[in-house]
Write a protein that binds this DNA or RNA. Structure first.
Length: 421
RNA sequence: GGAGAGAUGACCGAGCGGCUGAAGGUGCUCGCCUGCUAAGCGAGUGUGGGGGUUAUACUCCACCGAGGGUUCGAAUCCCUCUCUCUCCGCCA
């Protein structure tokens, strides 16, 4: 959410930047009208309340002196009624205003290229060698079926499309990847591991921006104010919601493994084969809360932390900078890491690293106290996948397949396959 | 699910319906002092919003878990909800 005052004072900028994202129905004109009305209501209400307060004081004094205060009390009765009326009108007005403000996306960073969709994203760099796997590399779902470690049919039987049953070494590999990623980020990159709830309430979803606009993307628990998390970003960013952190505590760096649940409404027909797009998938997520002046640098180091996972796994990838039209609602700037998928002969997203500035912090009330300053300020929040585990598994199956049909597991994973018992 | 207790500022913790945005303490910031990583003294220290200012200053309103209600007036009384704790039941 942007600050009300900021929107009011920068109407054309907000409008222009929103349009850069390809959003034309931001209802900025309506904002102006509702915001003006809001302040008129406030002015009148506050004046009346001020009068009520002073007169009530007078009534108290009169009563203390045992004098008659009936006339004043009668007058205040009317004032109170009028205030109540106006408050009702104000809150109706606020509701409409809020709906608009909550629907305005974050402003994109000046370094973000203007573009319509992912075709206009900019490649920042590539890493690794694309393996030579012959003319027609096998797809991960073929390989998985062949090895008996990936069973989509039985998952469909239980749950429907877009679910997978991992078996044997498949599930073992998934678990190894999760542990490898968590170990790397905690032990080498200094993140604190957390294991958050997988169901969260609507206030939490609102803070990070999934609600109110994107409810159709979420799975909701019937009759409860609970949603299944689409990413660990949601609970982890909210760990410190409505708290004021000390400056010396920053930056807060968290890493969390969670399953993620997405309805994938609107992506019918996309990635229908395999495990690239699932209703449930595992992800290791990196989340940072930091001081505003550092968030740009923190984004770069977050990206580097995520990239290192692929480097250690020796999987070829590239980094792209998302253009304005492809940028998520709450983000000001996003880098995607895309891993090479041989069967598709292209790079596919495996991580998304974003800076949200104070957009989420304002919604969630995440503050910090700057050293030597009286007023607390909003932190900046960032997050990125480190990495999407299912897609990593798919990438390993496709990239590391040997001519004899076996998979050569990346060396760094060896410790996770040791015999323990 | 049943019975009871509670929810106050960054934290702890007071608070007869009016003089409480809220005592006291801790922490933090600034200053002073002190021959030494401490102690002492003084001052300051919530959030949001409106008006005002180039920006300060200043000023007004709201907020004591959330939402309603009673009242001229609510942190204080009433109702509903949420959460926490204790006991019982159930349960991985």
């Amino acid at each position: 959410m942007l600050e009300l005052r900021f929107i009011r004072e920068n109407l054309s900028l907000v409008k222009e930047k929103t349009e850069r994202r390809g959003i034309t129905d931001s209802r900025i004109e309506e904002f102006e009208e509702l915001d003006k009305k809001r302040r008129e209501f406030l002015f009148e209400i506050e004046n009346l309340r001020n009068r009520r307060k002073t007169v009530s004081q007078k009534i108290a004094d009169l009563k203390k002196k045992k004098e008659d205060a009936e006339a004043l009390i009668k007058e205040m009765r009317d004032v109170g009624a009028r205030v109540k009326e106006l408050e009702k009108e104000l809150s109706a007005n606020d509701e409409k205003l809020n709906e608009i403000v909550m629907g305005i996306p974050n402003l994109c960073d000046e370094s973000v290229p203007v573009g319509q969709d992912e075709s206009e994203n900019i490649e920042v760099r590539t890493w690794g060698e694309i393996p030579d796997l012959g003319p027609k590399p096998k797809a991960h779902f073929e390989i998985g079926a062949e090895l008996g470690i990936l069973d989509l049919e039985r998952a469909a039987k239980m749950s429907g499309a877009r679910f997978v049953l991992l078996k044997g070494l498949g599930s073992r590999l998934e678990r190894a990847l999760i542990n490898f990623m968590l170990d790397l980020h905690t032990q080498k990159h200094g993140y604190e591991e957390v294991l958050p709830p997988f169901l969260v309430n609507s206030a939490t979803m609102t803070a990070t921006g999934q609600l109110p606009k994107f409810e159709q993307d979420l799975f909701k628990v019937q009759d409860w104010d609970l949603y299944m998390i689409p990413t660990a970003e949601v609970p982890v960013t909210n760990i410190h919601s409505n708290e004021t952190l000390a400056e010396k505590e920053l930056p807060k760096k968290y890493v969390a493994y969670t399953p993620c649940f997405r309805s994938e409404a609107g992506s019918h027909g996309k990635d229908t084969r395999g495990i690239i797009r699932q209703h449930q998938f595992d992800k290791v997520e990196l989340v940072k809360l930091c001081e505003p002046e550092n968030s740009n640098d923190e984004l770069e180091s977050l990206l580097a932390d995520a990239e290192e996972v692929l480097q250690l796994l020796k999987l070829p990838y590239r980094v792209v900078l998302l253009c304005s039209g492809d940028l998520g609602f709450s983000a000001t700037k996003t880098y995607d890491i895309e891993v090479w998928m041989p069967a598709q002969n292209k790079y596919r997203e495996i991580s998304s690293c974003s800076n949200f500035l104070d957009f989420q912090a304002r919604r969630g009330g995440i503050r910090y106290r700057p050293r030597g300053k009286k007023k607390s300020g909003l932190v900046h929040t960032l997050n990125g996948s480190g990495l999407a585990v299912g897609r990593t598994l798919a990438a390993i199956l496709e990239n590391c397949r040997q001519p004899d049909g076996t998979i050569k597991i990346p060396e760094v994973l060896a410790p996770y396959f040791e015999k323990r018992f």
